[in-house]
Design a protein around this nucleic acid. Structure first.
Lengths: 132, 132
DNA sequence: TTACTTGCAAAAGCTTTGCCTTACT
DNA sequence: AGTAAGGCAAAGCTTTTGCAAGTAA
């Protein structure tokens, strides 16, 4: 595995991200970091964010999936996303509406819905791996 | 509110989506639907998917958010997304690892993690609305 | 000195949009 | 007939990538 280096850019990008609770976009991080490195490029921000996420230093929300998937079933249900093949499965878990009550209690927000997704290796891929 | 019309295109797009359990992408739906309407355009697929999702007929996964957000806190936790202002908040709800056990049980998959997000109106926006 | 990183700019990939035509109701 | 919707193609946006130069280790 390739080793990584701690550059000035990476350090500042990480500092910017750690210093806010706002879950910023790459572009916001870029603009903030440019206050310290005026000629920083957006490509560098993306490269570092991806690397940091891969190392587990930060979390990428929205899972970088660059495109939407659609589900013909509008009734709320949960999903399993296979990290190997990318397939998305419906789960036969009952929807837990009480989670929304808890979320409302701790946040004070008016909750209108929730999404629960599991990530892992699906049955199909597990079998293939065992054969390797 | 604008009224909507049931066109041949929309009907077939919906049929394609309802006839699979695979959570397809817009492009896959496009290719399938083209088997029945060869000169269908991708723009039409997107327009209809967006309209159907808005009407609650179908579900859009990944929430169409066209960009990723990053979180400097790599420790698992849950989020609240405000549907009004778009802000993302960390929730002080304990992470429920037992959900993964249940998901593994019903799916047979090897679960490596999960994501739980709540959607609604945050405290901040609730106040603003009351003032209106 | 080695090879990972950066800046820059171009390319890529998904989605939206403008415009004129078609066709539901 | 009136107007939402379609087809096509261009534009928009976020993210990735190729390449030469820079710089951690």
């Amino acid at each position: 595995m390739k080793q990584t280096r701690m550059t000035r850019q990476k350090k500042i990008i990480l500092e910017v991200l750690r210093s806010t609770r706002s879950h910023p976009t790459a572009d916001w991080i870029y603009m903030e970091a440019r206050k310290q490195i005026p000629n920083l490029s957006l490509g560098t921000v993306y490269r570092n964010l991806n690397q940091l996420a891969e190392m587990g230093e930060i979390l990428e929300l929205n899972y970088g999936s660059s495109f939407s998937r659609f589900d013909g079933n509008p009734v709320p249900h949960y999903h399993l996303v296979c990290e190997n093949c990318g397939r998305v499965y419906d789960l036969e878990l009952p929807v837990m509406h009480q989670l929304e009550t808890s979320a409302a209690a701790v946040s004070g927000a008016e909750i209108r819905g929730h999404r629960l997704e599991f990530y892992g290796i699906c049955n199909h891929c597990k079998r293939e791996q065992y054969q390797q």
